[in-house]
Design a binder for these strands. Sequence first.
DNA 1: AAGTTACACAACCGCGGACCT
DNA 2: CAGGTCCGCGGTTGTGTAACT
Length: 295
Amino acid sequence: MGRAPCCDKASVKKGPWSPEEDSKLKEYIHRNGTGGNWIASLTKLRCGKSCRLRWLNYLRPNIKHGDFSDDEDRIICNLFATIGSRWSIIAAQLPGRTDNDIKNYWNTKLKKKLMHGLQPYNHHSSKQQQLLFVTASPEAAAPPEAARPLSLQHLSSPHDYSHHYSGSYGSNNSTMSVLSAAAGSRGFLLNGEHHTTITSCLDSGGGGLGLYFGLTAESFVFGGFQQLLEEDHHKALLLAVGAANQLDQQYSAAASSCYDEAKPPLVSLTDGGNGAGGTSTSSSFFYDSYSNNES
DNA sequence: AAGTTACACAACCGCGGACCT
DNA sequence: CAGGTCCGCGGTTGTGTAACT
């Protein structure tokens, strides 16, 4: 019944591929193509799955290695915001790039690049946090000519924010839940209008970094989230807020803030050249969440 | 110079759906 | 139709190396 076993996992080689193995694999593909059964003639060399992966991610012709362009960054960001971590689909939009490549690039570089605008906190110790979703001003969603320069805006209290969520949490999963709850159940304000439709809320795993986004018929929100576990501080930012059909416009504004017990929360909107790794590839601006210091 | 840490990338693992017998 | 494997995918781990102390 069924097919023969994939391979003898105890006897096939694992680990990095040698040039000899690569040339054997290339020769096999050259002779037999990739349409057939990966397992059939390769079981003595490597596990079929391993052969397929090596071919697709490294040996295949026209594979691009090296730095990603700004255009590729933009495509990845926009697609991630739209469909999440569907790397194979994203890779299909980037000729020469593999899903594994894009996944690694996102996890090691791009995510951090996008988070670059976050400033270090001063020290608070709090068990209860508030995440705040801030109204997107019409100025911020306008082209650069209109968006800059925006002056610093002091917010007198957390209640100046349109929506907030209170709760305690300590893991990525619960962080995601909080973000989901905050975004989904409370909604957010965009250009003065209340929106409640959040299509997804993602947590991208380790490192305390997460991402969330939302879509409505008229608007788009794509955000990031940073968690500083040891300080129990959380900071959220929106990377892109604007009309969905404006996403390709080349404008951005970045905001950074720091919280000081003696001062009200500060939100600084600036030209995007210095924010989020200097991204100018999508409409973007940042807001911070508010860390409630009451305990 | 040696040890440690952080980072980037390649490879592996486990799962779900498609497919085969 | 049932039982089994294959394929493709996303998440995770392992490894080499550069940067730092």
